[in-house]
Structure formats: C-alpha cells, structure tokens
Amino acid sequence: MSTIFRRNSLAVIVATLLLTGCELMPTRDADTASEPSAEPSRERAADSDDGASQDQSYGYTRNGLYLARNDQDISERRQRLLDEGHESVATDRVGFYMDVLTARLRQDLANQGVELSREDRTITLTFAGDLAFETNSATIHPDMVPILDALGQVLEEYHASIITVAGHTDSAGARQFNQHLSEQRALSVAQHLHAKGIGDARIMAIGHGPDRPIADNDHGQGRALNRRVELRIEPLTAS
C-alpha cells in the first residue's frame, strides 16, 4: 500500500513539475535576455543553501567536502586515495563487487524514480533534478530524503568505492547561475551522504552546468531530463 501511495504521489509531482516547466519557459527565456534584474529568487535559493557566493572556490568546502573543478581533478584525487592506502577492492574481486553492489542498489532503490545503469566498473545513478530538488534550488526535496538515506546505508556497507556527485542543468538561464546551481545541488547530495556516514575522502562533487546535456534542450521534456544529478560509483582498486 505504501509503495503504491508513494508512486502515485511521485506521479502527481512529475505531472505538476512538467506543467510548471512549460509555463515557466517563456519567463525564463525573457530572463536570459534581461539577466541582471532577474536574479533575486535564484540568488536567494543559492545563498540559502550554504552561503557560497558565485565565485565558489574549488577544493575543500567549509563542510570538508571536496568540490572538483574538472575531470582531471577527479582522477588525480582518485589516485591520491589509492596512494593514501584507502581500503580498496582486490583486482580479481572487482567484478563480483560491482555485480553485488548493483543488485543491492536495485533491490533498495527499486521503483523509487532513480535510474540505475551499469557499465563494467561504473554504476551511475541518475536523479531527476525536478524530483530531487525544489525548483531553482539546491534544497533536497523531502520525498528524496529516504532514498538518499537508503543509498547512504548501502554505500557505507560497500566502502571500497568512491562516489562522484555531478550536477547538471539545462541550457536555459544564465550560464554562471546554472554552473553555480549544478555545483550546489551536487554538494547538497554529497553533504547528505556525508551526514549519513560516508567518509569525506570517498566523495566529491562537481558541477557541469549545462555542458553535458543528455537530451534536446529545445523542448521542455528534454530540458527536464537535462536537469539532473548523476551519482557515479566506482570501485577503489589498484588498476
């Protein structure tokens, strides 16, 4: 019964958000044209989260979480984790580790609106931005909290892995705003997991802004798909 109820409520949310998105479209296009005067709500959303300004400094944030600047940054950090001797998976167990972890995530996140994909040594969980966050905000939606809690529990159990939380936005609106929003959203998720016991050494955040769309930004539906947070889970292994 509770599952059905949840599913129904999610469906209602999706529908509502899609409708809202459509209505907002012209407004946001207009905003892009007259950028400076159209920011109050967005700034408030960004500021209210952790007070970071638009000239966000990369590296460790105030909460001890790591915000990566780019992909190179991430791979360097992964190497550092290995060098520091963080617990890692033996090479011949990596397949087993990832198989079992995939199954466990499927079991725990089944029918929760989180998309799971597996590629050899990488598991990617995709959270729809409209479901996971308040509109134009990095505040995690209350419906998402139990899912992230469950995820935190699994990741704590499977601790020989590193997690990269990547925020993405659509292409509408000011680029800098989008970049900032994507970083803040990534940090929000990372923060939540960290709070659930995932060591800060295993987790990092990165914001890609509108740079890595997975769908066409010309349509409302495509933009909704592009507004997302991706969580990459990779084994820590000496390879």
Binding site: G95, F96, D99, A103, R106
Partner: peptide, 14 residues
C-alpha cells in the same frame, strides 16, 4: 565470488 554475474534481476537477485 566469480568475476561476472550471469543475471542481475531488477529485484536485486544475482
């Protein structure tokens, strides 16, 4: 602990 599962079902069964 074989390196590759034959099936990972949506239910979480491997």
């Amino acid at each position: 602990t074989p390196p590759k599962a034959s099936r990972i079902y949506d239910s979480g069964l491997v």
